[in-house]
């Protein structure tokens, strides 16, 4: 028997194929969005609005044409019910933001060797995502968004921020202009309300610094250094990076309603070795840099400019990323409906 006929017996018969197709047809059939719809969504995003489908979903859910849905788990829902907080609809927000680069896709650094464009991209991605999520919550007439789960990712110079949370309403309280945003779970939200505090917003502290190094710093980590010794210059610069990030986080909190403190702060840090390209004629940098005509001296090492007028300098990327929930004290003991109502009205 020829090889191409060997498995013929295993081929499903026409009846079996027909049966399988019929079975597949019994399932719900999915249809994709049209190209025109996608273009309308892009236009809406460019105008600072949310896509049509999101708007429609929120409206239909609030009008009870569709079942409500919530990211809250059962215990959270029970506690929400206990404080007369009703979940309205699941709300989302997303933004991809590209930091400015040169022709080769490399980041520009400012005069202090900070990646100001990347820092800007992180804040824009986060702010736009939160703004879009808040638009959905406002459409639903929500007072707050609870259990907002944020996800950040970076692919080279493109930063993504996505957030999904549950828009909620307090019974008998007039909706505010802008809903409060809480990255805390329903249970944590409940606990804070029991002791007179309320989550107000989600704050980000981010800083990215590139530290060019030379002989003095590199000699400490050299194989030939047999001493116990701290990399003091890197530690100092990393401390600065952390300080800037936390300053940014506080500034981020001041952009909205009053915040008295942060809880649930999570921190991620990263130090990686890299290579910095410094162009001839660049006058930025630290006091320790000496420009010497055809090269540059950094940290005790001289790096000559190559044929393209570029010196390649070893460096460390120092990154500090912190997020947390900004909370405000609005009473003492368990918050009453009146205290909550007064606070929310004061935000309008």
């Amino acid at each position: 028997m020829p090889w191409f006929r060997k498995n013929k017996g295993d081929t499903p018969s026409a009846n079996e194929v027909q049966l399988s197709r019929a079975l597949q047809q019994t399932f719900r059939q999915y249809t994709a969005e049209t190209e025109q719809q996608m273009q309308r969504d892009r236009d809406a995003l460019d105008r600072g609005r949310i896509p049509e489908a999101a708007e429609l979903r929120v409206k239909r859910t609030v009008n009870r044409e569709l079942p409500w849905m919530s990211t809250l788990d059962i215990a959270d829902l029970y506690l929400a019910d206990e404080i007369r907080m009703t979940p309205l609809v699941q709300v989302t927000g997303s933004c991809y933001f590209q930091a400015a680069t040169d022709m080769n896709g490399r980041l520009y650094l400012d005069s202090n060797y900070d990646a100001a464009n990347l820092v800007h991209a992180y804040y824009r991605a986060k702010n736009d995502a939160v703004e879009r999520m808040s638009q959905e919550a406002s459409l639903a007439g929500a007072h707050a968004i609870v259990d907002a789960a944020f996800k950040f990712s970076r692919n080279q110079t493109v930063v993504e921020c996505s957030v999904i949370g549950t828009a909620v309403q307090f019974e008998g309280v007039r909706p505010g202009k802008t809903p409060l945003v809480s990255p805390l779970s329903g249970e944590e939200f409940y606990k804070l309300l029991q002791v007179g505090w309320i989550p107000v917003n989600y704050c980000l502290g981010y800083h990215w610094h590139c530290m060019p190094v030379g002989y003095r710093t590199r000699s400490i980590s050299s194989l030939w250094n047999f001493l116990n010794q701290e990399l003091t210059p890197v530690v100092e610069r990393f401390s600065d990076t952390r300080r800037y990030a936390i300053q940014q986080m506080v500034a981020d909190a001041r952009g909205g309603p009053r915040v008295d403190g942060f809880v649930g702060v999570s921190v991620k840090t990263e130090i990686e070795e890299t290579e910095l390209r410094i162009y001839a004629g660049y006058r930025g940098g630290y006091g320790a840099f000496n420009m010497m005509g055809n090269g540059i001296t950094i940290d005790g090492s001289f790096y000559p400019f190559g044929n393209e007028g570029v010196a390649e300098v070893p460096a460390y990327n120092l990154e500090f990323f912190a997020t947390g929930a900004g909370i405000a004290r609005i009473g003492t003991g368990r918050l009453t409906k009146e205290a909550l109502g007064t606070y929310l009205s004061s935000l309008n």
Binding site: E33, M38, D41, A53, A54, T92, S94, A100, T101, E160
Partner: peptide, 24 residues
């Protein structure tokens, strides 16, 4: 896009549409 800080709207829209379709 060289030298520009800007939103990648096409990515954002794709993500939005995919998520909305799944939730709907």
């Amino acid at each position: 896009q060289v030298g520009q800080n800007q939103e990648m709207t096409i990515y954002t829209q794709g993500l939005y549409d995919a998520r909305e379709l799944a939730m709907e």
